[in-house]
Amino acid sequence: MLSLKQISKYYQAGGSKTYVLNRIDLDVDKGEFISIMGPSGSGKSTLLNIIGMLDEPSEGYHYLLGEAVHQLKEKQRSALYKQNIGFVFQAYHLIDELTVYENIETPLIYQNVKSSERKALVADILDRFNIVGKKDLFPSQLSGGQQQLVGVARALIGKPKLLLADEPTGNLNSKQGEEIMELFSKLNKEDGVTIIQVTHSEKNAQYGSRIIELLDGKIASSTLI
């Protein structure tokens, strides 16, 4: 479903190029749950952002669901993104001014889903995540774990085929982290959502089906579990 060919990302610093990613080749099949690991500065987040089209590679070829992303126009890319990708962040990135309900609803608004349909979908996911009672609270009134739960719910509301998570448990305690990882694992197995997560934690990486080790912008190893 996803294929990266010779993807590089570099910054021009003075006369020389500083590579963040250096000729990465990566193929991801539907239904995989991949954990990207590596030390700080190895390019994990950049790789994830490029996969998620938040960032553009300096060179290389990027295919998603059969589309050549590197050739798409802004509008088509945005459409592709909206329909297929959900993002979960370490810092949750909920919108402070919106309630739990509204936060989850927002992606649907941007997809021009009708109001009645939105209501049903949001009610459904609130129910599934057991946060119906919290729907009118603002993010600042929730614990970190709850906020991340909302973050995941928001990422999933558009029924994405690919869920990208950048250290989703980084700001959580171990119990909260476990819950989120259990949820990911369940989503992967039961709903068939393809997941790519960046993590520092060896333990969290074990939830996945494959671990990719990055070092200095290159894939050092790719291990199936």
């Binding site: 938040l54 927002t106 941007y110």
Partner: peptide, 16 residues
Amino acid sequence: SREVGVRKTLGAGKWQ
């Protein structure tokens, strides 16, 4: 700025 960023990741278009 953060809000704009988040909204973009949620699929917000320029005109929206």
